[in-house]
């Protein structure tokens, strides 16, 4: 029913989603913390930059990434020096996902950070916790709901990513073709309706699983916060 390249597209989509989410998490948490607790000039500017990919068409994001990471892009000398080739590889798809999903991740974590009573951190310090200790024993556990919510949103967004990915990673079956790109290809070629339909069904199934997982984790974290 499915061609080998279709399986590869499904696996690649999952891989890109997982890698993008894991890579974005530390920076997403740090950015959320900066925006939640930081008091500095230029904070609004950072907020705008972080949220920009949310409002820009993904194609614009892709094009800007192309200008940055392409053969003659702004970062080309650095990438050459590091021996890295990102453009038209699955890694570029990861970068595209990170950029478009980042605002969702930051937003969810930031909301949960802002809900933490800052006095709890102060109390933990007077009880002997270092800054780092307070971060991992108080802040991270209490923002876990936001971290999980943000991660699953980001993962879901990555699964659906099309516009930026097609520009920076291309649409090479077996190499950079993700699920949405495969569906696009089937849908735009005559006779591909059936295969497109099957992949759409797979896409729906993955999304339902992710959303179930998201709900389940959220409920578990809420139970824990409300008390066992």
């Amino acid at each position: 029913m499915l061609a080998p390249t279709d399986y590869e597209a499904i696996l690649l989509s999952l891989k890109v989603g997982v890698v993008a989410t894991i890579l974005a998490l530390p920076a997403g948490f740090a950015t959320a913390a900066l925006l939640a607790y930081g008091k500095f000039r230029g904070k609004t500017m950072i907020e705008i930059v972080v949220n920009l990919p949310l409002t820009l068409p993904p194609v614009v994001v892709g094009y800007l990434l192309l200008l940055l990471l392409g053969e003659h892009g702004a970062l080309a000398p650095l990438l050459h020096f590091l021996g890295l080739r990102l453009i038209f590889t699955w890694k570029a798809a990861v970068i595209a996902s990170v950029v478009v999903g980042f605002p969702l991740l930051v937003r969810a974590i930031r909301i949960s950070l802002e809900a933490i009573d800052p006095a709890l951190v102060r109390v933990s310090r007077t009880l002997g916790a270092t800054r780092r200790d307070a971060l991992f024993s108080i802040v991270v556990p209490l923002s876990m709901r936001g971290i999980l919510a943000g991660s699953s949103l980001m993962f879901a967004r990555s699964l659906g990513e099309f516009g930026a990915t097609v520009l920076v990673a291309g649409n090479m079956p077996g190499r950079t073709q993700t699920l949405p790109l495969a569906i696009y290809e089937y849908a735009s070629a005559p006779g591909g309706e059936r295969a497109a339909g099957v992949l759409c069904a797979v896409s729906v199934a993955i999304s339902v699983v992710v959303l179930f997982f998201h709900e389940w984790l959220g409920r578990k974290a809420a139970q824990r916060d409300r008390g066992r």
Binding site: D117, L120, T126, L127, S137, D225
Partner: peptide, 27 residues
């Protein structure tokens, strides 16, 4: 603060909501 060993009891108890009573006590 963590090296001063001066503990504070505030007007509000500020217990850690993700820990049970024993874990709070032992923090």
């Amino acid at each position: 603060p963590e090296l001063r060993r001066i503990a504070v009891v505030f007007q509000h108890p500020h217990l850690f909501p993700h820990l049970d009573v024993r874990e709070n006590l032992l923090f």
